[in-house]
């Protein structure tokens, strides 16, 4: 009986617990690494403020605006703004 169990078990062993462990870890570690490299706390407020200033002069939708803070080598940080300007016509 033990021998039978042994062979049956062998067949079910396609997905081992070690395999599951690796999969789960890869997902959680990848997720936590992205959070770790997350943008600084002030960025949402900064985005809001910049948008408000821009909107005094031009029409900017949320989709046509993006902001990014990138860490380059060493101590260099680059703040990147991307604003898509629409046709004057659509402005009114």
């Amino acid at each position: 009986m033990a021998l039978l169990d042994y062979f049956l078990q062998k067949k079910e062993k396609q997905v081992t617990t070690a395999f599951k462990a690796k999969e789960r870890l890869q997902i959680i570690v990848a997720h936590e690494r992205t959070c770790r490299n997350k943008q600084p706390d002030y960025l949402p407020q900064l985005t809001e403020d910049i948008l408000n200033v821009l909107r005094k002069y031009i029409k900017v939708s949320d989709e046509s605006f993006s902001i990014n803070l990138d860490k380059k080598e060493g101590n260099l940080n680059v703040l990147e703004l991307n604003i898509e300007l629409h046709d004057e016509k659509s402005r009114d």
Binding site: K13, T16, T17, A18, F19, A21, K22, L25
Partner: peptide, 10 residues
């Protein structure tokens, strides 16, 4: 080898 532990490679 029994699939119960993460391997070095993992």
């Amino acid at each position: 080898e029994e699939g119960e532990m993460l391997s070095v490679e993992d």
